[in-house]
Design a protein around this nucleic acid. Structure first.
Length: 879
DNA sequence: CATCAGGCGTGGT
DNA sequence: AGTCGCCTGATCG
């Protein structure tokens, strides 16, 4: 979790189902009346939801009763509705209902109401009920809370009879949630002929499983057929009509097992009725010629490919002009894939490019795009459209005609949010695939809503880590898959989330059944028929401590003292959070100092600015620092990666659309983070990285202890085995500039990959590096966040981590780029840490964080987070 | 006359 | 296993 996200959590209205609110403070039996006016039915033991109806013309206290399917059943009797309305409107408690019996009566039925709230509201709720002559009890008498099926629907009896799970057990259960025996998931299936890459056995299994999930006629989890009726065993809901099928699921394989390839195979292999996607010539009825001058390069590239095949087939000559031949199929084949925009450096790249009015979309799609090209036979025409960038064609027709449409979560949500005419939401897709689907985990975020609104027959989530923080993440996934009734928050909470977090074994069992039914997960260590799924070479991590030279130490201490003084004064004033950008700036400066010392001009971003121009520059400095700090900053409003980042006069960074929305909706707009007044015209944009182009070469170059340490390692390696290739990873591109100097000096052949590079050079860099023939580079300077998912750097077997990352996961991901399928050597990771410095403190905090996550899984106390953040800064600066 | 079991009709917010 | 208020008739001191 990033810093701004944590801050956002502090400012955000506390959610409705924090653990504190999960105390049962009383229950009472009430009556549902007016049944004959509504069609909704309830079976014995079935859950109902209670919805306030303040607009009811007869009684503003009205409380509506609805069944799990959302059909109205009736109302709560008005005498009881009166106190309930007060309690519900003032959020004193949440009320849940279960109907113990009731099919027989035509006019009314009983309902067992349970009040859930914070302990401190107990008295208020009890008093309110008492004032109206109702006494809340603790238990219902006269009947069992168990249904005929013996399942515990109220969660009451289990609380008393069964031993709740301990936190330890719960965590364990969570870890094992996805460990599936895969009994019926070992069947293999050959992909369609259009796939030219040979699938590994586990990929064939995944393909088979995915295909069967899409074509299956099985009932969704927890539905059973019983004497002509369809019966949900969890909610006790029974219907005549067959419940909607859930076609799709979660492919949760570990990174590097080929989720994307499997999905591509699925796309071309399983069209309607289990037949492959019709790609051959005969399905195309129409040939048109269009001008593609305006479409971006990659499209062009693909289409040129098509031209080539056409030339072969039609034996026609066509000059290499901008005209190209496109085939249009009369059948609709629509697939949508999302790519996660994970990396801030990419984002910077995008903004920079956007301003210079060039095509930028390619960088995001390059890996997926490549995979399509790589795995699909060249003589097959798969129509792929990148729905991205300012020039994207917002034509529903065009999109409908594609085989595959690629887009990003950001494009989707901005289309969805800005205008009602989002073309992506107008197409009835055959299949929607969320790549890296765990990024849409916050159901309140616009992008999540946009994703949920997509119409599709089949839905897939690809994610190596389907649960990132807590069970709540899963809710979003269920919601996307439209797995009734868990796509509605109330039912998800009542049936799964709350029972599980309260340690109910039945709830956990249900969760397991649920997950098992829709998820396929294999890890690198999974076994198939006793054999390892994928045998990866070993991976060893070494930490190499670096001692600063006396001179360096002196300079470092000086900078540290300065920063400590400033941050210390913020602490005293209690203004740490308001001066957050400054604090971050100081920390970054310190970390950079360790790497390359006086190569950074000490242009102060801390002194009070005077003229507006100075202020502007000052803010630009700050936003640059924040975005380059490597702390993976996210917008505190949308909780997403920053999109068009801007900085306010009070030095907080948001997405431009987000903060503009805030300013527009409030009269006296205030900064969500510090409550300072803000105006739209005072927002300062991030100018991109141009200004950073400092000359790090030449006379003013000077080595540092860290660079020396790296160089001695590299030299030793080369001596031992000149074919060994290494990745040198840093978060600071300018540090990479510095490293280039000694690399050249010692005659290393190297290449570089960072966010500032144009896509062409980027692809070339990877290609050169992966090529092992002599003369090609043996070292790649890699920016921690460059590359994105799916970049393959298996040529490297050594990784040098030059500076510790805030987020240990980012480091892991980086290493995974070479430690993956196709790696033949053991991977050695060397992390350089400077002794007695912020770096060491960072590592300590990293460790602490990890422990904390492991100990208290998913349970966070919001107030402690702010404290923890302050403590972190304190620990970093040794104050 | 008081009390109670049982039958009956009633029925939205 | 079931509402709930009201009426009735049986039963009791």
């Amino acid at each position: 979790m990033t810093i701004s996200q944590e801050i956002a959590n502090l400012t955000e209205d506390s959610g409705q189902d924090l653990p504190e609110e999960n105390v049962q403070i009383g229950s009472i039996q009430g009556t549902v009346v007016g049944l004959r006016y509504y069609t909704g039915t309830v079976n014995r033991g079935e859950m109902v939801s209670l919805v306030r109806e303040p607009q009811n013309p007869y009684d503003r206290n009205a409380v509506m009763v609805a069944n799990v399917y959302g059909r109205q059943v009736g109302h709560i009797k008005k005498e009881l509705a009166a106190p309930m309305a007060y309690i519900m409107d003032n959020n004193l408690a949440r009320v849940e209902g279960v109907v113990p019996y009731g099919e027989t009566n035509k006019f009314s039925m009983p309902v067992n109401l349970t009040f859930w709230s914070k302990e401190e509201n107990r008295d208020a709720v009890h008093n309110q009920m008492r004032r109206h002559g109702f006494k809340l009890g603790t238990e219902f008498k006269g009947y069992s809370t168990k249904t005929s099926l013996g399942r515990d629907l109220l969660g009451l009896s289990s609380k008393m009879s069964a031993i709740p799970l301990t936190a330890e057990e719960l965590k364990n259960a969570f870890d094992k949630l996805f460990d599936d025996l895969m009994e019926d998931k070992t069947r293999e299936m050959e992909p369609a002929e259009a796939v030219c890459t040979a699938l590994l056995p586990h990929q064939k299994q995944a393909l088979s499983w995915m295909t069967s999930r899409e074509n299956s006629n099985d009932l969704p989890p927890f539905w059973e057929e019983k004497s002509g009726l369809y019966f949900n065993v969890l909610t006790n809901f029974a219907v005549k009509e067959r419940p909607e099928k859930v076609l799709g699921g979660i492919l949760a394989d570990d990174m590097g097992l080929g989720k994307t390839l499997t999905t591509i195979a699925l796309i071309v292999s399983n069209f309607h009725n289990g037949k492959p996607l019709p790609l051959e010539q005969k399905t195309f009825h129409l040939i048109i010629i269009i001008n593609v001058e305006n479409t971006c390069c990659l499209i062009k590239k693909i289409k040129i490919k098509i031209v080539e095949t056409m030339i072969i087939k039609k034996k026609k000559k066509r000059s290499q002009t901008f005209k190209t031949v496109v085939k249009v199929t009369l059948q609709c084949k629509k697939i949508l894939i999302f790519i996660n925009l994970m990396f801030v450096s990419f984002l910077k790249h995008f903004i920079k490019k956007k301003n210079s009015n060039t095509h930028c979309s390619r960088s995001y799609f390059i890996s997926i795009q490549d995979q399509f090209e790589q795995h699909i036979r060249a003589d097959v025409t798969l129509k792929v459209y990148l729905y991205y960038g300012a020039e994207r064609k917002r034509s529903v027709k065009l999109l409908s005609e594609q085989d595959v449409v690629l887009t990003t979560y950001n494009v989707l949500s901005s289309d969805f949010g800005n205008k009602a005419n989002s073309p992506l939401h107008k197409v009835n897709w055959l299949r929607v695939v969320l790549d890296e689907g765990h990024v849409v985990r916050n159901p309140n975020a616009l992008q999540s809503k946009a994703v949920l609104e997509l119409q599709s027959e089949r839905r897939w989530i690809l994610s190596g880590t389907p649960i990132q923080n807590s069970l709540k993440d899963l809710y979003m996934l269920m919601s996307f898959l439209k797995l009734k009734p868990f796509d509605v928050k109330e039912w998800w909470s009542r049936i799964i989330q709350r029972p599980v977090t309260m340690g109910d074994r039945v709830g956990l069992k249900n969760l397991q059944v649920l997950v098992k039914g829709i998820t396929l997960r294999r890890t690198k260590n999974s076994k198939v028929a006793g054999r390892m799924l994928v045998q990866l070479p070993e991976r060893r991590v070494f930490v190499q401590h670096v001692t600063l030279s006396e001179e360096e130490r002196e300079e470092y201490e000086q900078v540290r003292k300065e920063g400590r003084k400033i941050i210390g004064s913020y602490f005293e004033e209690g203004t740490i959070m308001t001066n957050y950008a400054d604090v971050l700036a100081i920390l970054v400066r310190l970390r950079q100092y360790i790497l390359c010392f006086n190569h950074y001009s000490s242009s102060s971003s801390i002194n009070d600015p005077g003229t507006p121009n100075e202020l502007r520059e000052h803010l630009i400095n700050k936003i640059t620092l924040v975005l380059n700090s490597g702390s993976d900053e996210e917008c505190a409003i949308c909780l997403d990666s920053l999109r068009q980042p801007v900085i306010t006069y009070c030095a907080h960074v948001y997405c431009r659309p987000c903060i503009c929305e805030v300013i527009r909706s409030e009269k006296q707009a205030r900064c969500p983070l510090c409550r300072a007044q803000i105006k739209t015209r005072e927002l300062v944009e991030y100018p991109g990285e141009e200004m950073q182009a400092g000359a790090a070469t030449g006379e003013n170059w000077r080595s540092s202890s860290k660079v020396d340490a790296l160089m001695s390692n590299l030299l030793k390696l080369r001596q031992e085995d000149p074919t060994v290739k290494s990745l040198v990873v840093s978060q600071f591109t300018r540090f990479m500039d510095l490293i280039e100097v000694p690399l050249r000096e010692y005659g290393f052949s190297f290449t570089r990959l960072d966010g500032t590079m144009a896509q062409k050079t980027r692809a070339k860099a990877i290609q050169d590096f992966q090529d092992s023939s002599p003369g090609n580079p043996t070292i790649m300077l890699l920016s921690l966040k460059a590359g994105g998912v799916g970049i393959n750097l298996t040529a490297a077997s050594h990784v040098f981590m030059m500076d510790p990352a805030w987020n240990p996961a980012a480091e892991d991901q980086c290493v995974d780029r070479c430690h993956r399928l196709g790696q033949s050597r053991d991977v050695v990771i060397t992390k350089f840490i400077v002794k007695d410095s912020v770096e060491e403190n960072m590592v300590k905090i990293q460790k602490k964080k990890q422990e904390l996550v492991e100990k208290a899984f998913g349970v966070k106390k919001p107030m402690d987070l702010k404290q923890a953040r302050m403590e972190e800064i304190r620990a970093l600066m040794e104050i």
